[in-house]
Measured scan of single mutants.
Amino acid sequence: MQNSHSGVNQLGGVFVNGRPLPDSTRQKIVELAHSGARPCDISRILQVSNGCVSKILGRYYETGSIRPRAIGGSKPRVATPEVVSKIAQYKRECPSIFAWEIRDRLLSEGVCTNDNIPSVSSINRVLRNLASEKQQMGADGMYDKLRMLNGQTGSWGTRPGWYPGTSVPGQPTQDGCQQQEGGGENTNSISSNGEDSDEAQMRLQLKRKLQRNRTSFTQEQIEALEKEFERTHYPDVFARERLAAKIDLPEARIQVWFSNRRAKWRREEKLRNQRRQASNTPSHIPISSSFSTSVYQPIPQPTTPVSSFTSGSMLGRTDTALTNTYSALPPMPSFTMANNLPMQPPVPSQTSSYSCMLPTSPSVNGRSYDTYTPPHMQTHMNSQPMGTSGTTSTGLISPGVSVPVQVPGSEPDMSQYWPRLQ
């Protein structure tokens, strides 16, 4: 039975679970980093996980050691009161100082060594604690504590007292930064006198190289990059290397530039699409467009005044059976039934097929058609009795279509119309 579990990581490298990497692998990681390889490249070359490479390099940059820390136990506290007071002093002298600059000053002034120097995250935590204590304490208590930490007896009751030896409130920041720059020169002199001055200088240079600022491109470089971006948004590694040799930039910087440029292009394309949609959409909808001609068919113009009344309900007709019959029939052209047409008796099958359309009241044959006459024609229609054979009435077949029909004066039988409509 094995005491430890061995495995293979996602890159194909072998590791022992819970145990640190061998010293030979750690040394190779540092050597590759000094030669300029990126952590992701080191991870692929040595088949070590990216997190492990970053952790080893980060500890090497901070402490200069590649040895693993002790497994188990607690780390001794490195942010001692003396170190905290120095950090507060540096922050007062130059409020814009960075944590890694404070760390360098602690090393250069001999406050800490490589073994007990606090990390950048520890210094940031100390600065946050100082800021929170400043908010919790009152103004007087804060000034007393700062005077105690600074070891001075001057008056701290006013704002300019934060910067000793100065009279203009805006000047101390520059003086403090100048003092810090002077301390940086002392850093070089002190570290050069040490035993491991060369190694420390190499480590600091490598650290500065990794902690780079934003790349500033010249106009020629920007023009070359934009020209390549117009050709393709995704250049391959050969195109990037050719462009890197042409404009004297690292291939990694060119790759990052193209990634950022593609993101910018997507944002601009989104804005262009929004403007295009806004320009195509009308600002207001016309009133006429809300009524579609496919839904509402136009009603033909009436030929006679009587045809303006298109349904039985508008003429005072309360018989719903006839109203439904007229509205359900398709529109037909106007025609006239003459008196000489043969009077065919209704076929029983045809009569039964339209039995649902006729009223059940037996008085329908005896009703006159003056009910369908509009009010303004009552006088004219009353002067001509319906009993004469020459009287013409208008029957409504569908809305908007008038059918003048000659009705025999002897017997106005409704059943004569249905064979004609089939």
Results as ranks from 00 to 15, higher is better:
residue 131 A to T: 08
residue 68 P to H: 03
residue 71 I to R: 15
residue 6 S to L: 15
residue 87 I to S: 05
residue 56 I to Q: 00
residue 57 L to V: 06
residue 110 G to K: 15
residue 84 V to Q: 07
residue 40 C to D: 00
residue 33 A to W: 08
residue 84 V to S: 06
residue 141 G to Q: 13
residue 108 S to H: 13
residue 42 I to S: 01
residue 62 E to V: 12
residue 68 P to D: 06
residue 127 L to E: 01
residue 105 R to I: 08
residue 94 C to D: 09
residue 73 G to N: 05
residue 61 Y to K: 15
residue 80 T to P: 05
residue 38 R to K: 07
residue 11 L to N: 04
residue 15 F to H: 04
residue 142 M to H: 14
residue 24 S to N: 11
residue 133 E to I: 08
residue 118 P to M: 05
residue 75 K to N: 04
residue 73 G to K: 07
residue 94 C to Q: 11
residue 42 I to T: 03
residue 28 K to Q: 10
residue 113 T to V: 13
residue 86 K to S: 09
residue 110 G to V: 10
residue 51 G to M: 00
residue 98 F to I: 07
residue 68 P to E: 00
residue 144 D to N: 10
residue 47 Q to S: 08
residue 96 S to M: 07
residue 114 N to G: 13
residue 101 E to S: 08
residue 6 S to E: 10
residue 88 A to W: 15
residue 91 K to F: 00
residue 93 E to H: 07
residue 140 D to C: 08
residue 137 M to F: 12
residue 124 N to V: 02
residue 63 T to N: 04
residue 107 L to R: 15
residue 86 K to D: 07
residue 124 N to K: 05
residue 132 S to M: 09
residue 136 Q to S: 13
residue 96 S to W: 11
residue 80 T to H: 05
residue 78 V to H: 02
residue 128 R to M: 02
residue 47 Q to Y: 06
residue 138 G to H: 13
residue 36 G to L: 03
residue 128 R to G: 02
residue 100 W to L: 06
residue 111 V to A: 10
residue 142 M to C: 13
residue 68 P to W: 03
residue 20 P to C: 01
residue 31 E to K: 07
residue 24 S to T: 12
residue 15 F to R: 05
residue 41 D to E: 13
residue 97 I to T: 09
residue 150 N to I: 08
residue 114 N to W: 08
residue 76 P to R: 11
residue 128 R to C: 00
residue 33 A to N: 06
residue 35 S to M: 11
residue 36 G to P: 02
residue 100 W to H: 08
residue 77 R to H: 05
residue 117 I to W: 15
residue 147 R to A: 12
residue 127 L to Q: 08
residue 52 C to S: 09
residue 37 A to C: 13
residue 112 C to N: 07
residue 15 F to C: 02
residue 40 C to P: 04
residue 147 R to V: 13
residue 10 Q to F: 04
residue 80 T to D: 01
residue 124 N to L: 06
residue 36 G to Q: 05
residue 128 R to Q: 06
residue 85 S to H: 10
residue 53 V to K: 00
residue 49 S to I: 02
residue 37 A to E: 07
residue 69 R to P: 01
residue 35 S to H: 12
residue 121 S to A: 06
residue 99 A to T: 06
residue 32 L to A: 06
residue 67 R to L: 09
residue 111 V to C: 09
residue 143 Y to K: 11
residue 38 R to N: 05
residue 128 R to T: 04
residue 135 Q to N: 14
residue 92 R to S: 13
residue 53 V to M: 00
residue 21 L to Y: 07
residue 77 R to A: 00
residue 29 I to W: 00
residue 68 P to Y: 03
residue 49 S to P: 09
residue 15 F to I: 04
residue 71 I to A: 15
residue 66 I to L: 07
residue 45 I to E: 09
residue 109 E to M: 14
residue 106 L to W: 04
residue 92 R to W: 13
residue 28 K to M: 10
residue 62 E to L: 09
residue 105 R to M: 12
residue 43 S to K: 02
residue 88 A to R: 10
residue 22 P to I: 07
residue 95 P to E: 10
residue 138 G to L: 13
residue 106 L to F: 05
residue 68 P to M: 02
residue 91 K to T: 04
residue 105 R to Y: 08
residue 2 Q to A: 11
residue 84 V to T: 07
residue 2 Q to C: 11
residue 105 R to E: 08
residue 103 R to F: 01
residue 58 G to D: 09
residue 86 K to R: 14
residue 75 K to F: 03
residue 46 L to K: 02
residue 132 S to C: 12
residue 124 N to E: 03
residue 6 S to D: 07
residue 34 H to T: 14
residue 104 D to F: 15
residue 6 S to G: 09
residue 89 Q to E: 09
residue 146 L to H: 15
residue 143 Y to I: 12
